[in-house]
């Protein structure tokens, strides 16, 4: 269980990392938390010639609120987001999602940026970031850009990042008005990749009607997907049982699951529907009384 030999670079700044990415091109591979990459290297299905270890770049750590958004550094560990007390009220989907990722050992090392860039369709962060309408901030030789999460995931293991670009942070808009969220996941065993999982975020306007709806689908397609039809069905309506049932039935329509050892496509679609209804009911209960009109 030893990887192939590789060259190791440990840049101390984002600029240096970007320069190394440009220098090595196809041969270079960024090492973030390493919780997917290193096992693949040890199994020798991945054999990058150069590892560019970004663990030493302090600028990629931590989070802060700027201009109505939460900016989370790419190298923030899952465990930090799981335990961050100051994010719990305003951005609960972070801890709700983080606690479902693999096991505590992996959560201590794995990072939100690494997970997103790895672009595994079973990534829990992928679905959560879709629900929150996040943007990925990248840095390349040409400077920085913000990539909406819906454009970020291109295909399994493939993102919109160029070969010489580094993901440096994710930006999540602060909810306007009372908001609640849920992360629902079904696993074969604790810590497993999902059979199916769903991230749901809802905010209400002053009128008590849904003003923001975000539903991200995990492990049911080549990339994390958005349940756009269900979202649209919720917007502008109060979270009544009728609205919940209607919207949850629309969630499977945007999923593209495959038949595999975890279950049939039909099964996964139905689990998504059940999860959507349960999440929305919970959210409705949580938000009850938080706005004047109901």
């Amino acid at each position: 269980m030893f990887p192939n030999a590789f060259k190791y670079e440990a840049p101390a700044s984002v600029d240096e990392a970007v320069r190394l990415l440009a220098e090595y091109g196809y041969d270079g591979k960024v090492l973030a938390g390493g919780q997917s990459l290193l096992p693949m290297m040890k199994l020798r299905v991945a054999a990058p010639a150069v590892l560019i270890d970004i663990n030493g770049i302090d600028a990629l750590q931590g989070w802060r609120e700027v201009d109505g958004k939460l900016r989370v550094g790419a190298m923030t560990r899952h465990a930090e987001l799981e335990h961050a007390a100051e994010l719990r009220d305003k951005y609960p989907l972070f801890f709700q999602t983080a606690r479902w990722i693999a096991d505590p050992l992996i959560r201590n090392r794995g990072t939100i940026g690494g997970s997103l860039v790895h672009a595994d369709p079973g990534s829990d962060w992928g679905a959560a970031m879709i629900a929150l309408r996040a943007e990925v901030e990248s840095r390349g030789p040409q400077g920085s850009r913000l990539i909406p999460v819906d454009e970020f995931f291109v295909d399994t293991f493939a993102t919109a990042l160029n070969e010489d670009e580094l993901a440096v942070a994710v930006h999540v808009p602060s909810p306007k008005g009372p908001a609640a969220s849920r992360y629902m996941k079904l696993e074969r065993r604790a810590g497993d990749f999902a059979i199916a999982a769903l991230a749901v975020h809802v905010a209400l306007g002053n009128d008590g009607r849904v003003s923001e709806a975000g539903i991200g689908i995990c492990a049911c397609g080549p990339i994390p997907l958005r349940a756009a039809k269900a979202e649209a069905a919720l917007i502008g309506r109060p979270l009544t049982e009728e609205a919940i049932v209607e919207a949850s039935k629309l969630v499977p329509e945007d999923a593209e699951p495959a038949d595999d050892l975890r279950g049939s496509a039909e099964y996964k679609r139905d689990v998504l529907r059940v999860f959507a209804a349960r999440a929305l009911r919970d959210i409705a209960k949580e938000l009850q009384g938080k706005v004047g009109v109901q």
Binding site: M40, P48, T156, F157
Partner: peptide, 10 residues
Amino acid sequence: VKVGVGPIRG
């Protein structure tokens, strides 16, 4: 041929 699916490269 070069196979490059994310980190799976060979």
